[in-house]
Nucleic acid binder design. Sequence first.
DNA 1: TATCAGATGATAATCATTATCACAAGATTC
DNA 2: GAATCTTGTGATAATGATTATCATCTGATA
Lengths: 147, 147
Amino acid sequence: MRRETYNEFRRLCQEHSLAATHQRQKIYEALVSRPGHYSPEEIYEQVKQDLPSISLATVYKNLKTFVHAGMLREVSPHHGSWRIDANHHPHHHLVCTRCRSITDLDFDSLGPVKLRGKLPSGFRLEKFTIEVQGICKACTAAETKQH
Amino acid sequence: MRRETYNEFRRLCQEHSLAATHQRQKIYEALVSRPGHYSPEEIYEQVKQDLPSISLATVYKNLKTFVHAGMLREVSPHHGSWRIDANHHPHHHLVCTRCRSITDLDFDSLGPVKLRGKLPSGFRLEKFTIEVQGICKACTAAETKQH
DNA sequence: TATCAGATGATAATCATTATCACAAGATTC
DNA sequence: GAATCTTGTGATAATGATTATCATCTGATA
Ligand SMILES: [Mn+2]
Ligand SMILES: [Mn+2]
Ligand SMILES: [Zn+2]
Ligand SMILES: [Zn+2]
């Protein structure tokens, strides 16, 4: 691990009161040392090269921990089971980052997306999908009640 | 099922050479008769009220069939396993609808999204996420080779 | 109505994720 | 550095989601 990455890792662990174990080091490194959007399984395979005895469960647990701490992000705010949409009208989605509920948002609520630069060569554009992330009414209410 | 929905359903089945079974009717109806973004399990529960002997596998198979035929959409173009992103810079994603690969797209490649209308009351906005759907270079190449 | 490709239901198999718990290893204090 | 405490880890079982298999049935067509 590059010294820079290592220091960053130690700092983050301290900041979030996490023990700086070597498993966590390797998991963190596997993610930040190369671009990509890896699955837990992929991280596991990568880390196993250095730590053959690591458990897949450890990878899952620490990815959760890191995401929760804000050290890493999940690609999709509504990952989970497969969801089907019967609404054919062009529209966007409101996604609650707390309860992961999804609601339609009228197409005209947002202005159009404009392509400024070039897309990577060879990519054949089909359409833009916009998701508005936030906290839904119900979750906000539930949160307020707590205080 | 409303006559209108029923006719639409028959037409779509014919158009895509699908047998218009009553299982398919009910599955289709469960989706188009009410707004929402349902999981296969939820559709199954709904349809079972009318067809108690329907199998969950049938629901899955037909949802796939409908999506493949373009009669319905999947909410997420990259549903599948959990994906982690270590890239902290604001950026978007290119998602291949064929192989579901995900690549970063520079923030400045797209113009900003502007809020035109109002969001539903109570929704606390956090951020906009844009996914550019299309066919990636590799998939386009693979497709071309076939002809 | 007879025929048959395609659809269904039951269920096993697979894949993804989480829970459990005994043991090990960081962090902290001396 | 050793003792202690707390948290993390590895093994693995359990759960949940999705897909595969296959015998049987049914819608479409003539
Ligand atoms: Mn929708
Ligand atoms: Mn990214
Ligand atoms: Zn919510
Ligand atoms: Zn692709």
